[in-house]
Amino acid sequence: MNPRPAKRHNVLPGFGLSLGYTLFYLCLIVLIPLSAAFIRTASLSWEQFWGIVSTPRVVASYQLTFGASLIGAGINAVFGLIVAWVLVRYSFPGKRLLDAMVDLPFALPTAVAGIALTGLYAQNGWIGALLAPYGIKVAFTQLGIIVALTFIGLPFVVRTVQPVIEDLERELEEAAASLGATRWQTFMNVILPVILPALLTGFALALARAIGEYGSVVFIAGNIPMQTEITPLLIITKLEQYDYVGATALAVVMLVISFCMLLVINLLQWWANRRAGRES
């Protein structure tokens, strides 16, 4: 009942069963279905594949998806850092409620977020009506997509940065202050370098989520080809036209991007852990 020798002597049973089941289930649900997309696409020649994934409409959708995701993740990096700082360092009425609400975008179904934001930012909506006199349109424009992607990415930065701020050593800040540093210098030179890996990890997580996001965006986007059509929507459009090959080729592009993002995030986390290990 000892299928594989573990590095250290381990008397616990069930290694073969649990690992075997894990691998079996992982292959069945995740790996085999994902490989289907790559195998389907392999039947295309490189020219055919490139022809599908580089038409002007598709390229416009990449630009929009990435541009809006980068801006959304950037907004979250700035405001997420402030929110995390405020939640850790200050006490004020309503703080615990605010803290609990940070996770709302994880818990609220994306379709609900999508129709709620669309209703708010439409020209007759609560916020849209305030902006309309200034000629600012949000719903059914690229701005609306940025709003939706900011919403769904909000928890990532806060929740990755928050524990790092909690673990910050106050002594370092005291030392910096007693050596004559201003509070701003202390923040830039002492605090920021410590939380930077976590901040970047949060940014990358928010970006990765935003690139693949669909539910919250389709309602507010307006979905006009070349202007407000995101790549996941284009996949759906191709599927509805029974263009399975085209949909799969785009899916492969998105999968490759996902894998790259995953690699970047893992490297960032490794960096963050190493940094944290050295600090303590």
């Binding site: 992982l26 995740v30 690139i211 693949g212 995953l262």
Partner: peptide
């Protein structure tokens, strides 16, 4: 509970569905 080779790869693969767009997730099925 156990040490084995390829553990961190396995953890990454388990997290994989989080990085895949929901649309792609539906498409593969």
């Amino acid at each position: 509970k156990f040490d084995f080779r390829g553990k961190s790869l396995l953890i990454t693969l388990i997290d994989l569905p989080f990085s895949v767009s929901p649309i792609v997730a539906g498409l593969i099925y």
